[in-house]
Simulated scan of single mutants.
Amino acid sequence: MKAKVISPKQHALIDYALAGALLILPSLLKMNKKVKLTYATEAALLLPYIALSRQPVAVKKLIPFTTHGKIDPFNIAQFALQSLAPAFRKNRKELIFNLAFTAIAGATVLLTNWKGKTY
Rank of each mutant, 00 (worst) to 15 (best):
L37K: 14
G20T: 12
K30H: 14
L47N: 00
G20A: 14
L46I: 05
A12P: 05
I14M: 15
A17Y: 08
Y49E: 06
I14A: 14
K34D: 12
S27G: 11
A43P: 12
I24N: 04
L22M: 15
A51I: 00
E42T: 12
I50D: 05
P26L: 10
I24E: 02
L18W: 02
M31C: 08
L29G: 08
K34T: 15
L23W: 09
A51P: 00
K30F: 07
K30A: 13
M31Q: 12
S27F: 15
S27A: 15
L37I: 13
I24G: 05
L28I: 10
L13A: 08
M31S: 07
L13M: 15
A43H: 10
A44F: 12
M31R: 03
A12T: 08
T41P: 02
K34H: 06
K30E: 13
K33I: 04
A40G: 07
L46K: 03
L18Q: 05
L23I: 11
L37F: 11
G20K: 07
L37S: 13
A43N: 10
S27C: 03
L23Y: 09
Y39G: 02
I50L: 08
L45D: 00
A44H: 03
Y49M: 14
A43M: 11
K33G: 14
I24K: 06
L47D: 00
E42V: 14
L23N: 08
I50A: 04
P48Q: 03
N32Y: 02
N32P: 06
I14E: 07
Y49V: 14
K36G: 02
L18G: 06
P26M: 12
A40V: 03
V35G: 04
K36H: 06
A17M: 11
L28M: 15
M31N: 07
N32L: 05
A44I: 03
I14C: 10
L28V: 08
Y16L: 11
L13I: 13
T38K: 06
A21V: 08
V35E: 02
P48V: 03
Y16G: 01
I50C: 04
M31T: 09
L45M: 12
A19F: 04
L13V: 11
L46M: 09
L22T: 01
L29K: 03
I50R: 02
V35C: 07
L18A: 10
P26R: 12
T41K: 14
Y49T: 09
G20R: 08
Y49Q: 09
K34A: 14
M31P: 07
K33S: 13
M31Y: 06
M31D: 08
